[in-house]
Design a protein around this nucleic acid. Structure first.
Lengths: 153, 153
DNA sequence: CCCAAATTGTAGCGTAGGCTACAATTTGGC
DNA sequence: GCCAAATTGTAGCCTACGCTACAATTTGGG
């Protein structure tokens, strides 16, 4: 009776999402980047990356951090010893630097269009993983045009 | 021996992430928005929102779509009948419109800084859920200043 | 030096969201 | 009107990532 117009929809050439659904790996990689960046920051600023501090900064319990760190270790990004600071491997450092660069560009860009520092940092946190290379390049270009490269900090 | 400087780190007043870790709910809500927006679009353009088409557009299998739709139904956003088109409830429509508005602002903004349409749409897909009200407002302001409000489409 | 507090680790549970394999239903061509 | 193909639904498995509760280890104050 009130059957939807199935037939007429059949051959629609509607575009697929540019982002074909974050596959498992992609999403997992976002977490890895966040952790790597934060671990690097903690080591730089405090000399150690500790589970409790990571948990506090990420807003999760230490249990979640612990399990994630184990996964990162399986992936070769960090090394750990029980009850000691988390250490980044070469690959981990590389990743953290890529992430940091990207993060700073996004923050700098948001601030350049008048967004307050705190908001810019907060928003960038989630946005940065969804900014393509082309868009990142556009951000950089925008910053350069305004003589704001490198950002603030 | 090589114990990290635990003591000295104790009282660091390092800032928490502005985003205190996407709680379960937040993340779940992102999915709901994506689905609601896409369902609305499909209904508008083709007259029906069908599981297979959603799956194709989202880049996942129909099984994943089906389970998610069941969750949305539990949440009162959609109504379904077996083997029929998915329908949006009032709440679902409202959500889809909020999502659509936000999406268009982000896309419009990205395009306004020189990013190609396809890239802008793709990036906006992921970014839109991480743009705060303040940043969204800044985007709108930026667009208005350039007389580009409403965006393209 | 010892013992309480802090930190870290582990066990086990729940949901979200991917998947394959297979069953049920609908659609459409013949 | 039938039967194959397409669509939709269901069962069951996996990982990610939240959590609480509890165990193990380290740290530091007395």
């Amino acid at each position: 009776m009130n059957r939807p117009p199935t037939k007429s929809v059949k051959a629609y050439p509607l575009p697929l999402k540019g982002n074909p659904g974050r596959t498992r790996e992609e999403h997992s990689q976002e977490t890895a980047l966040d952790y790597a960046e934060l671990i690097a920051e903690l080591i730089s600023t405090t000399g150690a990356a500790r589970v409790t501090e990571l948990a506090r900064r990420l807003g999760v319990t230490h249990v979640t951090v612990n399990r994630t760190i184990q996964r990162l270790q399986r992936g070769g990004l960090v090394r750990t010893r029980p009850y000691h600071s988390i250490l980044l491997t070469g690959a981990g450092w590389k990743l953290s630097e890529e992430s940091r660069r990207r993060h700073e560009i996004v923050v700098g860009f948001l601030k350049s269009i008048g967004i307050p520092d705190a908001v810019a940092r907060s928003d960038a946190e989630g946005m940065e993983h969804h900014v393509s290379k082309k868009t990142l390049a556009a951000f950089v270009k925008h910053l350069k045009r305004r003589g704001l490269h490198k950002p603030s900090r």
